[in-house]
Simulated scan of single mutants.
Amino acid sequence: MQYLEFKINCKEDFREILIAELAEVGFDSFLETDTGLDAYIEEKSFSRESYQEVVNRYQDAADLEITEGMMEKVNWNEEWEKHYDPIAVGEEVYVRASFHPAKSEFKHEILINPKMSFGTGHHATTFLMLSHQLTIDHQGKRVIDIGAGTGILAIMAHKLGASEVEAFDIDEWCVDNGNENFDLNGMKDVKMGLGTVREVAPQGTFDIVLANINKNVLLDELEIYASLVKKQGNLLLSGFYTHDIEDIHEKAKSVGFKLLSQKDKDNWAALIFEKI
């Protein structure tokens, strides 16, 4: 499996926007750098036309400079050590890699050794989802993480006392990485599945469903999420901009959810719904 690599220099204000736009056209892995970002996509999934539309849209405003290349699958831990710093979510959660020292003053510590997987807590959507999780009772609950990436939200659910945790992603590298991160966090009995929600077809219902993906996928799959959430259970969503809240809210309402809470950070949004 070969990946195409795009080293993108851009204005700092456009870094997060470009990540979101490229994710919409199939890019599945990103590494933020001092001058912009590196973006990766599996060669067979790459559409030059869709990619070029994004580049043309932001070329002048973001002052884009792009170098293209190709690479084989590699271990990303060394690269991440150069760029990946620990983060704190409030005063309760500390997210770090295994090469960072522990901090005992935090109630919850999450170990994430990312490879080419999205979700380290640095991106606003992951941060927001973790923040929302801290407000929801997970004790003894059945939880599923859809599009789990590194598995960080599933790990948070485990740390918060969930009795059963499931997770899956469409990317094989995410699955491998997620399983490694589960082991690091004492979740050896949890194995990440591979596929979309339709392909995985989770069985039964859940107290909490987590989905940090993107607007189009969420809108397409919300009806399925409604079938997975127990009555009075919670659905936590992110992966979209604040200006997309209305669209997400309207769709969620149409399939039986009411909005309980919302947070935003850097123009990204995250919502908590309850099944009614």
Rank of each mutant, 00 (worst) to 15 (best):
D171K: 05
K188F: 04
E91I: 05
D176T: 14
H83R: 14
W76K: 07
I66G: 03
I152C: 10
N77W: 12
N185K: 08
F99S: 11
D137Q: 07
I155A: 03
P114I: 05
F118I: 08
A157R: 01
L184R: 13
K141I: 02
M129V: 14
N185T: 08
F168R: 10
Y58T: 12
S163F: 02
T135M: 13
N113C: 08
N177E: 09
C174K: 06
A102V: 08
S104A: 15
G147Q: 08
C174T: 13
R57P: 01
M187A: 12
D171S: 10
G121D: 02
G186R: 11
D60W: 04
V93S: 02
A167R: 12
G69E: 11
R96E: 09
G186N: 09
D60C: 00
N185V: 09
M187V: 10
H122I: 07
F168Y: 13
I110W: 00
R57E: 13
H122E: 11
D85Q: 13
W173Y: 12
M70W: 07
F168T: 07
A62P: 02
K107L: 07
A88E: 13
H158T: 04
A88G: 03
E78P: 00
N56E: 14
E68D: 10
G178L: 11
Q139W: 04
G151W: 10
H108S: 01
L64D: 08
L128Y: 06
D63W: 00
A62N: 04
D176C: 09
L160W: 02
T67G: 02
L64G: 06
S163T: 11
K115D: 14
I112M: 06
G151K: 09
H83K: 14
E105A: 08
K191P: 03
Q59S: 11
N177T: 14
I66D: 06
W76T: 05
V175M: 06
G161K: 13
E81Q: 15
E81K: 15
M156C: 09
V165M: 08
K188R: 13
I87R: 07
V165F: 07
N177F: 10
